[in-house]
Each structure stands twice: as structure tokens, then as C-alpha cells.
Design a protein around this nucleic acid. Structure first.
Lengths: 250, 250
DNA sequence: CGGTACTTTGACCAGGATCAATCGCCGTGG
DNA sequence: CCACGGCGATTGATCCTGGTCAAAGTACCG
């Protein structure tokens, strides 16, 4: 089974099979992290690149009054700070959401990789740009949708992103968030998150129990929140036995 | 007077004086655009890079129900689509907000520039990452702040960004938005925008008349909305006679 | 068995949306 | 010159999404 990073970058449409072993190797050395562990503190000036190999992490900002906004979700195969050194100090923190494994790559290794493998360099660019695209989708989600659709949209996105890296089935995945965290993701209070979830359950759009989210009808959920996966910029899965296995789109 | 692009990239802290003429040249050839003109349609697959030389533009997404969210603001010196070709089709549109000038650079020219000038390449990276950082700040703004602070935060950001490129004075700038557009930026209704503006005026935080925004006390406004410019990642202005030369505004 | 973290529920309140009417400003055409 | 229409801003009235406060229930853990 390929690593999540390989699975993800394969969907950029920019790689050939020759690139895959190199990419695989990036995930080889990883260290375990525990849930809640802070990977990068705001203000730090890191000199390594963090790659999620297993587990979830999140990027967040904290306002002086104590309010918190999660501004990014790193799933297996996602980089936490591919850019790190260019910007100087970080303007937000990153912490693990679940136990998992993180690879820490020296910035130099990444730089060398980019110089020597132009296709991979482009694929990394692609990953960064998709991240930015997701931010725009989130911004639209917060700015224009009400609680229930907002939540549904997040679930749709997570379903697709996790399916890409082989961490979700056709209809569900493990959702390791507390309701407070869901609130920090969506700009809602924990109380309201609870009610919205009840509501979605009541409409039969989701089944959420024991940290596992099931979506009885993915098309229905997508219609409900106008989810259009275009912003994830995924090329069709290619290669051996590409098949009817991904019904993505809609 | 240097072009806005030069002024902006100078603040990356990554360039030397030798790079400046090359950067200047990018703004040399520009064509006029009128207010409202669409520069890039959603779904298009552009093969040129757009650079704002003068005037404002905005990036926006439209939901099926007709709601609109502005997900980016391009000021003089900002690129509209530095990444263009990698992602394939665009997931949003870009339109001019005011009359202005736009340079259209062939993607090849940009690629060559990146290959031949590594410092400039890094500076362009920097610009892209700052854009992403701004998106995270906006997301936090929408998710965690109420209308009045949200508006104030936008004004603070615009003031700083415009000052960088010499298009704002110490205390104000030309704000070419209608209240509907402000609403689309901030996720507020036009009616509420009107009330929030009254409120800010009432508190003496802003003076807004004839499309010109004046901020009587910038520190007060910043305190009001917890504005911390760190996310713009600006290095101190360097170089010959760094000074009080940019009162541009008008 | 008590503590802690998370979820649920209820009551109440407020930020902000929606609907609707009015007003001011301009540009256009009679 | 004036009437008209369109756009944007303002204001008022009303409604609703979602926040806050508070309490209680649930589950896990040492």
C-alpha cells in the first residue's frame, strides 16, 4: 500500500511512476506524536518540514480574548509547513489532533529534492496551491453558509480528502473531533454544534457515533450543502486498474 | 518612484538591489482595465499571469443561491494568479474593482524568471505564502470576530498593505468599495454594513466620506480589533535613506 | 468512587438577516 | 430644464440563527 503522500500527489496529475519511489521515501522515517501535542509554536522559526504520515493535525490561531479558530486541517499525506523557512516566524500554531506519526524532513533535503526533481517540485507546488484553494472554500463556507450546511460541507470535504489517501471508505470515516473542536473549525459555539449535529442526524444526512461518521447517501449530503469538489483540483486516479472505484464528483 | 511590485517584494527581505531592475520591468507593459471588468472567469485555464499595476481587483466565489464571497483582494503590486498553470482550471473568478492597469505576463516568462533568478523566485514564493497567510487571517476574522471588529480589521490590513506599495498615507486611503462589496468581503449583509459603518464613525474610529477612509488614530483602531500585522510578514524597509517618502495617497 | 472531559438540553438574549420604504445622487433622454 | 430611472446608502420593523449561561447527564480514568 502506497503512503498517503504518494496517493495524494498522484492525484495532482503531474507525476510519472518514476517519481513515486522518491516520494515514498519521504514518509520512511517518522516519529510518533500523541493527541494534543503541539508540533509548531506560534512565533517559532522552524528549520524542518513536517509531514503527516498518520493521524490528524490542525493549524490554529488564538485571539487575545481566548477565542480560537482552526485555519487548517492536516490529514495523512499533508505537509504542515512546506514553506517554513521563507516566511520566517510562524503566525499560528500546529498541534496534533490524534495520535499519529510525523516525519520531520530537514529543509535542505526538501530544497535538494525540488532542485533535482522538477516534476516533484511541481507536485509540491500543486499541494500548496490546493491548500490555498481549500482556505478559500473555507472562507466561503464561513462567510456564506449557515451552521448546518457549513458542517455538512466540512464533512464532504473530509470524506473526499480522506478517500484520496485511503483513510475513508465509500460512506464514512473516523472523525476524531470533539464538538468544541468542530466549533473552532466552523466558527460555531460548542452548544450550537451539538444542535446542528442533532439536526443533521434528524434529517438522516449523517450517522455519527463513537467518533465514526457515516453518510448514508453521499449525493444527498453533497446536494444539501452545494459541495463541488472542484476546488480540491484532483485529477482522475490513473494507472493500473483505474476503475469505477471512485464515484467522486456527483 | 518604484512600482508597487518592487515596493512590495522589497519587504520580503529576500532581495538585493541587483534584483530590482528585473522586477521593475515586469510592470512595464500593462493594459488599462475598467471597473467591474472580469479578468479571469471561473473554469478558465489561463496561460498568462496577471499582475496588478494600478487599481484594485477581487477574487470571488458565487454560490448557487446567488450569494457571493470575496476571497481575495488584489492591490497594486499583487499577482492575481502566480500559480495559474499548475492547478488547471480556476475555481473562482477575478474582476477589477476599480479602473486600473494590469500587466499580463506569459507564463513562460515567469517560469524563466524563476529559473534564472533564484532570489526573485524566493520572493515570489514569499508573496504567495503571504497571500495564504492573509487567507488564514480572514478566516479567523470571519469565524471569530463580530461585525464591527471584522470591518476594522479589514481596514487595518488594507491600510498596511497599501502603505507598503505607496498607495496610502499615514492615516487613510481611497476605499473604492460599495457597501454591498464590503458585505461580500466580510460575510455581512449590506444593511448591516451600513449600520456597522455608522457605529465605527460614531465611535470616532473612522471617517469615511466620498470613498476616502481616514483613521484619526491608527493605534486606537488596531487596538479595537486586535490587529497584529505579523501575518503580513513584512521585513523592515531597508536601503538608502529609508524615510518618510511615501505619502502617495492623494 | 470522585474527577474530568464531553455532550445534551433548556432558557434567554443578541448579532445580524430580511423585508420594505425612503432618500440622495447622477446620468440620460425628452 | 426637468422628469425619470438606477444605484447606493440609510432607516425602521421584524424575525431567526446562533451565542451565552446554566445545569444535568454520560463516559472514561485513575
Amino acid at each position: 500500500m502506497p503512503t498517503p503522500l504518494t496517493l495524494k500527489l498522484s492525484r495532482s496529475g503531474l507525476l510519472t511512476d518514476a517519481d513515486l519511489p522518491v516520494i515514498e521515501s519521504l514518509s520512511a522515517q517518522s516519529r510518533p506524536v500523541e493527541a494534543g501535542q503541539v508540533l509548531i509554536h506560534e512565533g517559532e522559526h522552524p528549520d524542518t518540514v513536517h509531514l503527516m504520515v498518520e493521524g490528524f493535525a490542525h493549524r490554529y490561531k488564538i485571539l487575545p480574548e481566548g477565542r480560537r479558530q482552526i485555519v487548517g486541517l492536516m490529514l495523512p499525506g499533508d505537509f504542515c509547513d512546506l514553506q517554513a523557512t521563507i516566511l520566517g516566524s510562524r503566525d499560528h500554531s500546529i498541534a496534533a489532533l490524534t495520535a499519529g506519526n510525523v516525519a520531520e524532513l530537514p529543509q535542505r533535503l526538501v530544497d535538494d529534492l525540488i532542485l533535482s526533481h522538477s516534476r516533484i517540485a511541481r507536485a509540491l507546488w500543486w499541494a500548496t496551491l490546493v491548500e490555498e484553494s481549500i482556505l478559500r472554500a473555507w472562507l466561503t463556507n464561513l462567510g456564506q453558509r449557515e451552521g448546518d450546511r457549513r458542517m455538512a460541507h466540512l464533512f464532504c470535504e473530509m470524506l473526499v480528502r480522506l478517500q484520496v489517501v485511503g483513510r475513508a471508505g465509500e460512506n464514512g470515516f473516523v472523525l476524531p473531533f470533539s464538538q468544541v473542536q468542530l466549533g473552532d473549525l466552523l466558527g460555531l459555539s460548542n452548544v450550537h454544534v451539538s444542535r446542528v449535529l442533532q439536526d443533521l442526524r434528524g434529517q438522516g444526512l449523517i450517522v455519527l457515533k463513537d467518533r465514526r461518521l457515516e453518510v448514508p447517501s453521499v449525493p444527498r449530503l453533497k446536494t444539501f450543502c452545494d459541495f463541488d469538489p472542484g476546488y480540491l483540483h484532483l485529477s482522475p486516479r490513473r494507472g493500473a486498474g483505474s476503475d469505477a472505484r471512485d464515484h467522486a464528483s456527483r
